[in-house]
Amino acid sequence: MDVVRTAIGLMSGTSMDGIDVALLRTDGRGFIERGPFLGVPYEADFRQRLKRALELARPLTDRNGRPAELRDIELELTQRHAIAVMAFLERFGISANAVDVLGFHGQTVLHRPDEGLTIQIGDGQQLAQTTGLSVVYDMRANDMVHGGQGAPLVPVYHAALAGKFQQAGQAVCFINIGGISNLTFIGTDGRISAFDSGPGNTLIDQWVEMQTGQAYDPGGEIAGRGKVVAALADRYLASPFFRGNVRRSLDRGDFAPLRAGEASLEDGARTLAHVAAASIIQSTGFLPETPSTYIVCGGGRLNGTLIAEFSVMAEGLGSNVLTAEEAGFDGDAMEAEAWAYLAVRSLDGLPLTFPGTTGVGAPVTGGVLATP
């Protein structure tokens, strides 16, 4: 009989806006019971510290290398995760003794899949000692050791959630619009395909922050007042990333931000929302069949302008578009839930990645276990 465990997943994504904390009871297979969720935002000063970490990581060639300043940021990030866990337990009246494991993503500061290099800062052993809980962390590395891209890792969780759609004979595609967008496709035959699909929120966030000082475009309101600048959109959509039959995972810096003066605030935001939507459609051209249903997750689903653009494009191809909530899920919690699910799979030695998700040669497990 498969063991059902209680796990907490911790996710700090490429948007660098905060820590997502979610609880899941699962056997790491087909049994999933979703629990509460808490988002813990970063202050502006710490977001700047994380941006500094990206700069410090850029010249690194050793994934275990930590210059002193980067190590300081790593320790602060880890401490913030520990505080977030304790706040989560207190908020929802959960005893630490009831939690079997934490799934800890850390913060990706460098991802160069073509070089077999991925770096996530976050000290799993320190987190275990601080919280008194077992921690599974560093879940990307083993995939890359075995020839995979190290991303995306969420697809195995998406596949577990897709059951009700598959029972209806539908090909379903989960779209996660974070800093970078990625997709998971589960075909009518149950086959999984997954890959990064292009820029998501990062370009929009960078543009809005540069122009206004605010961290993002709330609800896509700024973009909603603008128009698409075709020449700028075409420049992004002509990227070599969208050509060729080999899908690759992306780093936050793979698509350069708009430069000051290239568009008005509103037109720049609208153009980049269009690019995010069109990137997904271009990337779905590599799927074996057209999805019947798209389920949109991640912070980008809250950008009304982006979602309206994507819905028109998808519906023009005969596909239905649902937000995670419309499909019965929690779009804010899903990635953190996935890290909880992956941690349980790691404890049982089950595969986290597959040839159809990261390009790894054969299904492979991953993660490092730290105990208090």
Rank of each mutant, 00 (worst) to 15 (best):
G13L: 11
T14M: 10
S15Q: 07
S15M: 08
S15E: 05
S15Y: 04
D17T: 07
G18L: 07
I19D: 08
D20M: 12
V21A: 14
V21F: 03
A22R: 01
L23F: 07
R25Y: 03
R25G: 01
T26A: 01
D27H: 03
G28H: 09
G28R: 11
G28F: 12
G28D: 06
G28Y: 10
G30C: 01
G30N: 06
G30V: 02
F31K: 14
F31P: 00
I32R: 02
I32C: 07
R34L: 09
R34F: 08
R34K: 14
G35P: 03
G35E: 09
P36D: 08
L38Y: 03
L38C: 11
L38W: 00
L38K: 12
L38P: 04
P41F: 13
A44F: 05
D45S: 15
D45L: 06
F46A: 03
F46C: 05
Q48L: 13
Q48T: 07
R49P: 04
R49L: 12
L50S: 07
L50Q: 07
L50V: 13
K51T: 03
R52H: 09
A53N: 10
L54T: 15
E55M: 08
L56C: 13
L56G: 12
L56Q: 04
R58F: 02
P59A: 12
L60H: 00
L60W: 00
T61G: 10
D62R: 12
D62V: 11
N64P: 00
G65N: 05
P67S: 09
A68R: 11
A68L: 11
E69N: 03
R71I: 14
D72T: 14
D72K: 12
D72S: 13
I73E: 02
E74W: 10
L75N: 06
E76H: 08
E76F: 09
L77D: 03
L77E: 04
L77H: 06
L77Y: 00
T78W: 00
T78Q: 04
Q79R: 14
R80M: 13
R80A: 08
H81T: 04
A82L: 07
I83H: 12
I83S: 07
I83R: 15
A84S: 14
V85P: 03
V85E: 05
M86F: 02
M86A: 12
M86T: 13
L89E: 11
E90H: 09
F92K: 15
G93N: 12
I94M: 10
A96Q: 15
A96V: 09
N97F: 00
N97H: 10
A98W: 00
V99P: 02
D100R: 14
V101K: 01
V101Y: 01
V101R: 01
L102C: 10
L102P: 06
L102Q: 13
L102M: 09
G103K: 15
G103P: 07
G103S: 08
G103R: 15
F104G: 13
F104C: 11
F104L: 12
H105F: 02
G106R: 11
G106Q: 10
G106H: 08
G106Y: 05
T108C: 00
T108F: 00
H111L: 06
H111K: 09
H111D: 04
H111N: 05
R112P: 02
P113N: 06
D114Y: 03
D114V: 09
D114T: 10
